[in-house]
Design a protein around this nucleic acid. Structure first.
Length: 648
DNA sequence: CTAGTTTGTCATGGG
DNA sequence: ACCCCATGACAAACT
């Protein structure tokens, strides 16, 4: 039901945008204001802010973060965006601003939802939801009147952005529309306003943690915020902030990708956006997962000036944005689409050898996040690429990741995928060890044990990786030379046309052919054999160490398991002993009771000390006299015998 | 500076 | 005989 509502809402919003593009003004404020009221009822939320954010949550998830990009539910969303793109191509140069307005609406919805405390506060004061609706209506009614005012107060928004949440957003959106119709000269100003919008988004978030910065006109909401914060759990607040953050990420990335066309007219926006991103970075509520996105976003935004200078850079930014948020159909579809990713995953690195150079460039410009996605493996694979002790788990690793490692990490000697990866594939792709290709290949130029090719921001690299490969793409060849392994240096010194990786990984047959067919000198042959032997032994050593560690870990786990089992058995033993003691006492008591009711031949009660009850196999209970000698110990028997002997 | 860790290498042995 | 692999041992680099 919520999803249906979401679709309906989104569709309505986008229809509104489309209508606005052709000059039809549609005021959705009233709809939105009325929309949340039933939503609140649906979500049975007691006027909590969270109960008013489902729309936002759904949007967030369907925007691509929590939902897989291939999720069919996104088709509609992407189709809508494509439609908007087509409309823009039809000649509406200011559409990005319109999209901004749409995004603003989107956030405004959440903000309005987040400003739900107003609703909750109203409910607290028993004023009901109607008052909120009235507020929204009044706001929307004032909008046409205050458009000019808003435009004038934009700079103020820049300083202390719209504290009023939804109100400010709607004003911005309508403002954009009207300005669009008014004067083209307002384009840069529009850009600035959009920048302000972006900033306002952040401010809206920061207002969560610091509501004091809100504007005086928003005193009511401010107070309501204080009320909310006073009762809100910290964890809830964190989750709330994270929701806002995710939404922000979506908006920001989308804004970047969509604003690119306007960028030549709004270079300042990029800078301002960078500032915004930086500010977001300083906010400590950036979660670990979000942090890379934010950093990447910052990076892409910093690349925006370059994009403004040349369209050639556009696809790269689009790639970054596309892969970051998984949304927005990019113009890069020709260069990089899912099929390419699949191809990379399937072919492993060998695809790089035959891939289009442009695509390789694209890949090189990708951030680490993208590369990790390509790897479709966690840090483990990365660590394995960097030669971590865990790496050698060759046999357990997937072929895709292994091949990826081997290729991408270049001479990462001990990705230990020698077995799992398809060496023949490499040879086929490189056309049977073409020396030229090998020397020119990217991975060949990097350290034998370094994943330099994948050198993303150091954050994602393990210490070992950093240690072995401080190289980055910006580092000069001297560092590169320094980080070459000894064997690599020897191979170069001996003018061997193969990299260490190739020497190590090529099949025996190929290796023998190489030794025989290239007319190598005996020294070169010896070096080739040594390199191969050392490389394989290095892999073997790493495998061995990993196995040893695994064995130790397994033994430790087994020790822990056995200790737990021992403790459990000891407890069971104690419990059993207790139970046995209790049962014995019960039997004793029952025996006394029974014997007390029995009489001997003389009519006297049986002495419990001299008789006992024995239960036979047939169920009969027999009274038996206690045989003292049987009860007495062996030492007792001996003493008895001695006494008897003495008596005799 | 020292101790511990990591990593590459060699020697050896088994398959 | 050769190759591959596993593993202990050693040394260098690094933390």
């Amino acid at each position: 039901m919520q999803i249906a509502k979401k679709y309906f809402t989104e569709g309505l919003i986008q229809l509104t945008i489309l209508l606005s593009l052709i000059g039809v003004r549609v005021d959705i404020d009233s709809y939105l204001s009325g929309y949340y009221t039933p939503l609140t009822e649906i979500n049975l939320g007691p006027s909590s802010a969270y109960t008013q954010t489902p729309f936002h949550i759904l949007r967030d998830t369907l925007d691509g973060y929590s939902v897989h990009p291939k999720c069919p539910e996104l088709d509609y969303f992407f189709a809508s965006r494509r439609l908007l793109e087509e409309v823009r191509n039809l000649g509406s140069p200011r559409f990005p601003t319109q999209l901004n307005a749409w995004l603003v609406h989107q956030v405004s919805a959440t903000d309005k939802a987040d400003s739900g405390p107003s609703t909750s506060n109203n409910t607290d004061t028993n004023s009901g939801l109607e008052s909120t609706e009235e507020e929204a209506r009044s706001v929307s009614e004032h909008l046409p009147v205050t458009d000019q005012e808003v435009q004038q107060t934009n700079p103020e928004l820049g300083q202390g952005p719209f504290g009023a949440g939804a109100c400010g957003f709607f004003k911005e959106g309508d403002d954009a529309n009207i300005k669009e119709e008014e004067e083209p000269t307002a384009l840069t100003q529009l850009a600035h306003s959009s920048t302000l919008e972006q900033e306002s988004l952040l401010e809206g978030i920061t207002a969560l943690s610091n509501p004091v910065h809100q504007h005086p006109p928003t005193i009511d909401i401010d107070q309501q915020w204080n009320n909310l914060l006073s009762i809100a759990d910290l964890d809830d607040l964190d989750s709330l902030v994270s929701e806002r953050l995710s939404d922000l990420d979506t908006d920001m990335t989308s804004a970047i990708s969509q604003d690119v066309s306007l960028h030549d007219a709004m270079v300042s926006s990029a800078g301002a956006f960078g500032v915004v991103s930086g500010r977001a970075e300083t906010r400590t509520f950036t979660q670990q997962q979000r942090a890379p996105f934010r950093l990447n976003s910052t990076g892409s935004s910093r690349a925006l000036p370059g994009m403004a200078l040349g369209l050639a850079a556009l696809p790269f930014a689009s790639v970054c944005n596309l892969t970051e948020n998984g949304s927005s159909n990019s113009t890069l579809g020709d260069c990089l689409d899912e099929a390419v990713f699949d191809q990379i995953n399937q072919l492993g690195l060998e695809g790089l050898g035959t891939m289009d150079p442009q695509l390789i460039d694209c890949l090189e410009n990708m951030n680490s996040q993208v590369l990790e996605d390509l790897d479709s493996d966690s840090g483990l694979s990365l660590e394995s690429c960097s030669g971590g002790p865990v790496s050698p788990g060759s046999s357990e690793m997937s072929s895709s990741s292994s091949s990826y490692c081997e290729d991408e990490c270049g001479a990462t000697g001990y990705s230990s995928e020698v077995d799992s990866l398809p060496p023949k594939g490499i040879m086929n792709s490189t056309t049977v060890w073409s020396p030229v290709d090998l020397n020119e290949s990217v991975w060949h130029d990097h350290s034998y044990s370094s994943p330099a090719f994948f050198n993303p921001p150091p954050v994602t690299l393990s210490q070992k990786g950093i240690k072995e490969e401080p190289l980055s793409d910006d580092d000069g060849p001297q560092l590169e030379q320094r980080d070459l392994s000894r064997d690599e240096l020897r191979a170069r010194a001996m003018c061997l046309p193969f990299s260490v990786l190739q020497i190590v990984n090529m099949p025996v047959e190929e290796f023998l052919e190489v030794l025989d067919g290239h007319g190598f000198s005996p020294e070169q042959v010896t070096l080739l054999r040594d390199i191969r032997r050392r490389g394989k032994n290095k892999l073997a050593a790493q495998n061995c160490r990993k196995r040893k560690l695994d064995a130790i870990t397994g033994l430790q786990e087994e020790v822990e398991r056995l200790q737990v089992q021992r403790d459990r058995l000891l407890r069971e033993k104690q419990l059993t002993a207790k139970t046995m003691g209790a049962v014995g006492q019960q039997i004793k008591q029952l025996t006394r009771d029974v014997l007390a009711r029995l009489r001997d031949d003389s009519g006297q009660p049986l002495n419990p000390d001299r008789f006992t009850l024995q239960c036979g196999s047939n169920g009969r209970v027999v009274v038996q006299p206690i045989r003292r000698p049987a009860v007495s110990t062996s030492t007792g028997n001996k003493t008895d015998k001695r006494k008897k002997e003495k008596k005799q």
